[in-house]
Write a protein that binds this DNA or RNA. Structure first.
Lengths: 243, 243
DNA sequence: TAGTGGTCTAGACCACTTC
DNA sequence: AAGTGGTCTAGACCACTAA
């Protein structure tokens, strides 16, 4: 238990929510009532309520009061990274090919990159390896614009282990879908898998938050045994959540 | 752009971070400097900085200053629910069996439930169906304590669609692992799948945050075509993140 | 010692909801 | 009209950091 007043109030109210004294949808005491119960001023009470709000425990309706949230039980936090979060440590990247292609050469890619059918794309194909073994196969696509720094960056990072988006991570939004499938023959060969093996096919789009532009689209395929998907319900993961 | 001062300051600083004017690790102007630049008082500045902190953009070191965070690029938010988030709507639950067993009858279950080998477990086996078709197979385990309300709750919810943990969601921590595997024969039969089909095997532990006790352990197996896993990098998902 | 962030207080004005 | 939350201000004291 903290000896800071506003944190005491926070953990006190949090306890009441956790113990079920306040149920989702219930209204808390009014701010003036809380001022009296905790013998402090509006400012301190409001600081406590602000913290509870940012942690997702309560919300407020102006003119009415503060209410206990209905917790969102469907949200999980998943920690994933192509390079760090596999069961093996990627220690080598084998570049298979770097090509500049017409959009029409790759069916459907113009939709993924949200570009017109007249444009060019750059394609990178590479293998991620660990201890001389092929762990994953990856294709990366981006719009090709000659002399564009993004393209140069992609090439620079093509055979490095760090993903290029880490440099400007604040501006990026990544969205991925995970599927479990039987590998296509090319992939099965590369990963030295039987045809009825299983791979995770992870498609990821990286979007610039400002310009809304799709920066890159990648397909990452990895044998299931190298990737364990673990997700934690993210409710209590809010910042500074400490009881 | 908001007409509320502290929100203006927030979005202003956020823009500077997004545009790269402030880089991760950089120190912001001091609070007194910010007071001068925005011609306001310490309180308003501090309110802005508090919001930026809770959104994960900055952190502060007492006596030194406020610094731009290195964004965590590995964290994704996954929305998942056995009942709502499949590609089909579960409209029926078929209870296959409810049994009370010795812990030793289910190899390894005492580890999952963190109980001793002398205790009893309750086991629920059920099918989740949609439009007369079997979508998923689920086994749920919990420690069996006669007359314990948890057990009664489990039984009450055993053939309902809502998961029982929703009632006390604040106190629960859910942790799940997702695997893609070839189904065991029992599962393949139930889901009417070929032996070389693929299912997602989702194991979930529900833990009471207060008591640290494992409330339940479940194994949920669903044909891959009914579950699309989509994850979004959770950086910009913080509450009230609005630029 | 000067500068920094952390905590706390008193009081004003506004917009909103409810009766 | 009474009560509610939202925003904003001035100023104090503390603990910490750095020179």
């Amino acid at each position: 238990m903290s000896d800071v007043l506003y944190l005491k109030i926070v953990s006190d109210i949090k306890q009441k929510i956790l113990k079920g004294e306040y149920l989702p949808g219930n209204m808390l005491e009014s701010e003036t009532a809380l001022m009296r119960t905790y013998e402090t001023t509006k400012i301190t009470i409001r600081k406590s309520l602000a913290l509870l709000t940012s942690e997702g425990f309560i919300y407020s309706i102006p003119g009415k009061g503060n209410f206990v949230c209905k917790p969102e039980t469907n949200l999980y936090t998943l920690s994933f990274n192509k390079f760090d979060k596999l069961n093996v440590q990627i220690d080598e990247v084998q570049l298979l090919s770097v090509r500049v292609l017409n959009v029409t050469d790759i069916p459907g890619i113009y939709v993924k990159l949200q570009i017109t059918e007249e444009e060019m794309v750059i394609e990178i194909r590479r293998l991620l390896c660990s201890m001389e073994k092929v762990i994953a196969f990856e294709k990366i696509y981006a719009k090709y614009i000659p002399q564009n720094p993004n393209v140069e960056n992609m090439l620079k990072f093509a055979n490095y282990i760090q993903p290029l988006e880490d440099e400007n991570a604040f501006v990026m939004e990544k969205r991925m879908t995970i599927e479990a499938i039987h590998p296509e023959k090319e992939i099965a060969d590369q990963l030295k898998l039987p045809q009825d093996g299983i791979v995770y096919k992870i498609e990821e789009s990286v979007k610039n938050i400002d310009s809304k532009e799709i920066m890159s689209y990648s397909i990452f395929q990895v044998q299931t045994k190298y990737l364990k998907l673990t997700a934690v319900q993210s409710f209590e993961n809010s910042p500074k959540s400490s009881i």
